[in-house]
Design a protein around this nucleic acid. Structure first.
Lengths: 249, 249
DNA sequence: GAGTGGTCTAGACCACTGT
DNA sequence: CAGTGGTCTAGACCACTCC
């Protein structure tokens, strides 16, 4: 009835709601599905349905972030280790964070070949990366990054997933192989999650994900990285700020 | 079975699928719901379920668009009328487009007051605006724009919805009352559509919308417009391009 | 074992579309 | 009118969690 419940509160069970409302359980479930699509409630099998914490939004400010990362590249390593990009976004310190990284060597399919401007079948390094708070289970973003294998092979450290997290981010690692970025394009979409993504991000299958396809172009015009960043649509938010040129007075 | 059907094809009816598959109609409907959430199929009551046209994506390049709009402000009106922002996005000419505009005078609620940095209850001009192709029924974007009423009242034309579409866009109209923009911030989210939005944008209730909250700040640091732009998540895409500063050599 | 949500069935009625 | 999707019921079984 328009009321508000404290986060973590256990809802009455579906059968109980059906009995007390005079509706069938099917109808009650349909109603609850709406609440789930809005991320207001989470159902746990065998346990019950709980009110979710208020949508703690993750805010990514990509415009500033990219330039900020670039500026950091030329700092010495000690400086870089102190603060990473995730802390930049969330305000959490490095001790609160858990990392996961996983490297594989794959061949470019037609779609990725077009995005990277290479031939289909070209060897790529696929880097799956996520980070989450030690106190929460689900990551806030998951990143699938693709780089031409021959390019990164110039620095063996870049092929070693145990060297994660990359100190200073992707731009610094590219710097070690002589690459300077000139431009980054972000392409933003929303779509339903795959079952895997729903589980990993701890969202209901009915909640969309926000995705960013980030394309990094170096100073010679070459595409050096394509990354797909996936975020839970009910908790994530992207911010882009544009400074406009002044009219001549 | 992984096949692909031509757009517009009529699917077998739900009862027919239930009979031929040996499943109940409820289960068939659940399966179809997945297709709907992906925007692959559209159900029309009384008619049937059709395969949707391939997701013709609308691409908005906001970073360039905002500066482009600003540059156009100082051109003379004849120039401006030739090409508007929608044509800039879609490549359609002005003859192919239908416009809708609707003005109301409202009071700022707590949320909008905070966004506009005014007191709650302040009079606002609410401008609902959309444009769509003459050959398709549903708009590609709907915009809900809010401006302080006293600000725009300085030019009576800005209070007259019949003067839409604004020749040269919002930035030109602000120019007529002596305002130059300094910065535009975009805040991007995804969420389920309201029933009204689902109908207007011609999407299934299960398909999320992509929203942009656009905040325009003038050269004195004042927020002069807040606009909420709503797009169908299965057909829209946002692009932001960032040019990075060079390292000193 | 009792209680939860997840899945499924078989059938009913309604609102809407075409002819 | 017959056929479509939208909504609803009443009941079953399963997988899972907790005691």
């Amino acid at each position: 009835m328009g009321g508000e419940l404290a986060p973590g509160t256990l809802m009455p069970s579906e059968t109980e709601l059906a009995d007390s409302s005079g509706l069938s359980r099917t109808s009650v479930r349909n109603a609850i599905r709406q609440l789930r699509e809005w991320g207001l409630v989470r159902a746990e099998q065998g346990r019950g349905t709980y009110v979710r914490a208020p949508r703690q939004r993750v805010r990514r400010r990509n415009a500033e972030r990219y330039q900020w990362e670039k500026n950091r590249v030329l700092l010495d390593e000690g400086e870089r280790l102190k603060t990473g990009a995730t802390e930049h976004d969330t305000g959490l310190t490095v001790d609160d964070l858990k990392f996961h990284a996983e490297y594989t060597r794959v061949e470019a399919d037609a779609e990725m070949a077009a995005a990277l401007q290479v031939d289909p079948g070209t060897k790529l390094l696929r880097r799956v990366y996520w980070t989450s708070s030690r106190h929460e289970n689900a990551p806030l973003t998951v990143s699938y990054s693709y780089l031409p294998y021959d390019l990164v092979a110039a620095n063996p450290d870049l092929l070693d997933e145990s060297k994660e997290p990359w100190p200073g981010g992707t731009q610094h690692q590219l710097y070690t192989i002589g690459i300077e970025l000139d431009r980054i394009d972000d392409q933003i979409r929303a779509r339903p999650p795959s079952p895997d993504e729903a589980e990993l991000l701890d969202i209901d299958p009915g909640v969309s994900v926000l995705t960013v396809r980030k394309t990094s172009v170096d100073t010679t015009g070459r595409v050096v990285e394509v990354a797909d960043i996936v975020m839970p649509g009910d908790r994530a938010e992207l911010v882009y700020s544009h400074k406009l040129q002044r009219w001549k007075t």
